[in-house]
């Protein structure tokens, strides 16, 4: 595992779990994150987060499904020192790249 996400701190008690919304970008397949207001970003740091991801999901796919975003779903994240960090190895690999 790359050093950038090797030393995940243990869950801090005052953190509440959050959720964000992700997808893959149609034209090139890269992971993108819902950044609010109909926009998507390849940077997880631009994610809007909420305690209830379903609300965000509804906002992300409101109206006709955005052409840009393929396979939209909710992920678990942590907010640590202002940064959005995905929980779970799969989403970490998606966000930060292969570990090997």
């Amino acid at each position: 595992m790359a050093a950038s996400h090797e030393s995940e701190p243990n869950v801090v008690t005052n953190e509440t779990s959050h959720q964000a919304v992700t997808a893959n970008r149609l034209r090139d397949g890269i992971p993108i994150y819902f950044a609010g207001g109909g926009s998507w970003s390849p940077n997880i740091g631009d994610s809007v987060t909420a305690e209830n991801g379903e609300t965000l999901l509804a906002e992300a796919i409101r109206g006709p499904l955005p052409l840009e975003a393929v396979g939209v779903y909710v992920i678990e994240v942590r907010l640590a020192e202002g940064a959005v960090r995905p929980i779970g190895i799969k989403e970490q690999i998606r966000a930060f790249g292969p570990t090997a």
Binding site: D28, I30, P31, G71, K90, R94, P98
Partner: peptide, 17 residues
């Protein structure tokens, strides 16, 4: 589209196609 691209070997994976 998915079944059409799959029959041409194109998968959508974690980081890209």
């Amino acid at each position: 589209f998915r079944p059409l691209r799959l029959r041409n070997g194109l998968y959508l994976q974690l980081h890209a196609y």
